[in-house]
Design a protein around this nucleic acid. Structure first.
Length: 133
DNA sequence: ATTCTAACA
DNA sequence: TGTTAGAA
């Protein structure tokens, strides 16, 4: 009994990663994790815990659950790391493009807001100088 | 006390 | 994803 690897309950993981148990079950429904069972109860192994970490990390950088699932599927199948890494690079590239587009949109919005604010201040000033206008 | 499924003001 | 009801 040297490898009775540590297991976790859904509530332990939800506390550790600050997500609800609902969220963890949701990821399972989405096919991102498949914990073992003890009757009805879900038993999470180290592997599942790592997956949860990866799911949350992926979410943090803006990856969709499908993209994360695709990477997991590749990882499960592939015997070679290369295809997974190449796909990961592609997904990250896509994300970078999205962020760059958002960056552009945000900058434009900032310009408009700034310009509009100046316009309003200008009107306010004019009103004080000649109230009738 | 915890977890599970299923459903939806 | 949240919330919640009812069962185990």
């Amino acid at each position: 009994m040297t490898n009775r690897e540590r297991t976790y309950t859904i509530s332990e993981l939800s506390r550790e990663f600050d997500v609800t148990t609902r969220t963890i079950r949701f990821y399972e429904d989405e096919g991102l994790i498949e914990p073992a069972r003890d009757g009805q109860k879900r038993i999470y192994q180290r592997r599942d815990r790592v997956r949860l970490m990866l799911i949350l990390r992926g979410k943090r950088i803006g990856l969709s659950l499908q993209e994360i699932r695709e990477l997991f599927e590749l990882y499960d199948a592939a015997n070679d790391d290369e295809p997974q890494l190449q796909e990961f690079i592609r997904i990250l590239g896509r994300r970078e493009v999205q962020l760059q587009e958002q960056m552009k949109d945000i900058k434009e919005a900032m310009r408009e807001i700034s310009q509009l604010r100046r316009q309003c201040e200008s009107w306010l000033k004019a009103r004080k100088e000649r109230p009738e206008a």
